[in-house]
């Protein structure tokens, strides 16, 4: 635990020493709220809920997750500090988890920056508090999953930009797989494929949770996706050394 915390602390400081984290948080905040009001017709919906707000989150995470996560290992590889880190008396998985948690704090900060929309919706009507909480939890898990996937991809390369592009592509597929247009198109001919699309998709799990439907499968799926991605990161880092 101690080692994880040391790595976490350093990584977090490094995030907030860099303008990138602030820029990303501000963009996230503006984009998620702007889209809600402009495209999501938040006010015209006459509905005191944040469904239209959470609707856009998977799309934003498609870029936001990779943008936060791309430096996690690429930067270490580029600077050569992987060699330093992995010859310290710590395990690779401790470094991986510590770094991932630091990126999750940036994500949490970005989500926290949207808190004003919660006040707005409470001011306008009587929203369902449970729905908002489960929406935020779902959103956080989806964001964390996209970071974890990016983390694994960043372990491959020393180039942050290629990591970003590949990670965005992977997240794009994961969002789109459960998007209604796609599943509706698939359902008549390949119903099984549509179901698989739903069950792996960020979009589907996020929208389920944003509707206040807390079923075990969404958190379990997203958490295991995170676990698997971090495990994969470890495998890649070990593989690169031998």
């Amino acid at each position: 635990m101690r080692n994880i915390f040391i790595i976490f602390k350093r990584e977090l400081k490094s995030y907030f020493n860099n303008p990138l984290a602030y820029v990303l948080i501000i963009i996230f905040s503006l984009l998620s709220m702007g889209l809600t009001f402009v495209i999501g017709d938040f006010l015209k919906m006459n509905d005191a809920s944040l469904t239209s707000f959470f609707f856009f989150h998977p799309w934003i995470y498609m870029i936001f997750g990779p943008a936060i996560g791309m430096r996690l290992w690429s930067e270490e590889h580029r600077m050569g500090t992987t060699e330093l880190l992995l010859t310290m008396p710590i395990s690779a998985w401790q470094a991986i988890v510590g770094k991932f948690l630091a990126a999750c704090v940036v994500l949490a900060a970005a989500l926290l920056s949207t808190i004003s929309i919660v006040f707005t919706v409470y001011y306008l009507g009587k929203p369902d508090g449970q729905m908002i909480v489960s929406g935020y939890i779902g959103s956080f898990l989806v964001g964390a999953s996209s970071i974890a996937i990016t983390c694994a991809i960043s372990a491959f390369t020393r180039n942050q930009i290629s990591c970003l592009l590949v990670a965005v592509a992977v997240c794009f597929v994961l969002v789109l797989a459960g998007f209604p247009r796609v599943t509706e198109f698939l359902r008549p001919n390949f119903p099984a494929l549509a179901d698989i699309g739903n069950s792996v998709s960020f979009w589907w799990h996020q929208s389920e949770m944003a509707r206040g439907i807390i079923r075990l499968q969404s958190p379990v799926y997203l958490l295991s996706l995170i676990g698997f991605s971090l495990y994969l990161t470890g495998v890649i880092i070990r593989g690169k050394r031998s």
Binding site: S14, N17, T81, L84
Partner: peptide, 13 residues
């Protein structure tokens, strides 16, 4: 104690 060849460091610290 190990000094790697390229003396890698965290540049932002």
């Amino acid at each position: 104690g190990y000094l790697p060849e390229s003396a890698p460091l965290y540049q932002d610290m």
